[in-house]
Design a protein around this nucleic acid. Structure first.
Lengths: 225, 225
DNA sequence: GTAGCAGTCGTACTAAGTACGAAACCTGCG
DNA sequence: CGCAGGTTTCGTACTTAGTACGACTGCTAC
């Protein structure tokens, strides 16, 4: 019954010393797998093979943990290169942000409540601004462009997260129940769009992202001084 | 010490019978005042002058409560009139949505996790689609426009909620501490923008909304068949 | 080896969601 | 007027989660 000293871990994954990095990565994993709801100090400790209170040596509380996670997500976004072509760089960065936010969709909901950006977040924003300024955008237009592109990216990610389906063909699976719920033509335009467009083979809502982004970039180009 | 039967409420606001409407309104109030965090079944009951378990006769649980709140927020948005001029109607509706989401900014974070839209939400979306379709937009362009405008509105609201300030002049109050935190020129472009633009008298970040919206509407108009 | 410190954790308190079933209330009917 | 049956309200209590406090452990430098 007594454990020999050489075998350390009885039932938990990855033993050893904790580090802030391991804590954050484990938290990322949990949130990615099961959403923010599954991420508790206790589940986190368990994932790390430790007891809840051990976590508090690496984060001061759950709030700081969430702040750190948001910053970690921003860190994964490919920032634009301030010396490249603005249009291509902003475009690339926006696509990257969208992909990252799709993977960590729980992070979007966090953005609303966190008002103290971390270093990675600040750095990303700085690079976006630098890219625009160096490309000859006026301060005013830079501010416009920045607000516009970011809003679009976040908003798209937000919609994507709240869609009840995933991928090109899964649409039918959840859309049809909704179709029925619409009853006797309460939402005719939605029905029309669903049958004529959304449910057509080959349609993938995810493709909408590029259209809007290009429209925005076109508009900015036209308005550039 | 004994209360006379005629005086009913001892220490709580608004007595009488509960209704689902009163429950939802109280929940709205609490969330508006103190954010989602303050909204608990217990605080809600207390606001209503009732005990926690009484609430469960009007909502099946906290999740359903949150779903209902999101739908209530959508209900407050001014939907476009499908028979009006598409550009003006979409514009008006977008401004309304932005105003509503600013007032209930906690709702934005909820959007990410709720995947079953309520009737008001569906109705709003239906009206947007109808407005575009009746104005001669193709199904394809309608889908594009819908995703684009909604993304922009949600995303703008999301950014607005996470800004650490409010209103035209409050900017300085919170931006300057951040300026210092930037240390020795770690974020030069942000500093440049802050000093040359954001902190200039008369600048109001909220005004950015119109620029982006008009750019988007211009772009859609150009691409209309 | 041992003082000292960083890291780990046991215990326990608090807040919050909510299951269960009883009490209070109201209504229409005899 | 009184009572049966449904409706509403709530008392109690269990569960999960965050985290304060201080003790224990084990490594490192002397």
């Amino acid at each position: 019954m007594t454990e020999s000293p050489s075998s350390s871990a009885p039932a938990a994954p990855t033993r050893k010393r904790l580090t802030r990095e391991r804590v954050l990565n484990a938290a990322l994993d949990i949130a990615d797998r099961g959403g923010l709801q599954r991420l508790t100090i206790r589940s986190l400790a368990s994932e790390l093979g430790a007891r809840p209170m051990s976590v508090y040596h690496y984060v001061s509380g759950k709030d700081e943990l969430l702040d750190a996670l948001v910053d970690a997500v921003f860190d994964a976004i490919d920032s634009p290169d301030p010396d490249g072509d603005w249009r291509e760089e902003i475009r690339r960065s926006a696509h990257s942000a969208r992909a990252v936010l799709r993977k960590h969709s729980w992070a979007i909901g966090l953005l609303e409540s966190r008002t103290s950006p971390g270093p990675a977040t600040l750095r990303h924003h700085d690079r976006v601004l630098a890219c625009l300024l160096r490309s000859g955008f006026s301060a005013e237009l830079t501010a416009h462009a920045y607000a516009l592109v970011d809003s679009y990216v976040y908003g798209f990610a937000l919609q994507e997260a709240s869609l009840p389906f995933e991928g090109p063909d899964a649409v039918g699976g959840v859309a049809e129940p909704i179709l029925e719920r619409m009853g006797a033509g309460e939402y005719p335009a939605m029905v029309e769009m669903a049958t004529n467009h959304y449910l057509q083979p080959g349609y993938d809502w995810a493709d909408e992202f590029g259209f809007g982004l290009d429209l925005i970039l076109d508009g900015l180009e036209q308005r550039r001084g």
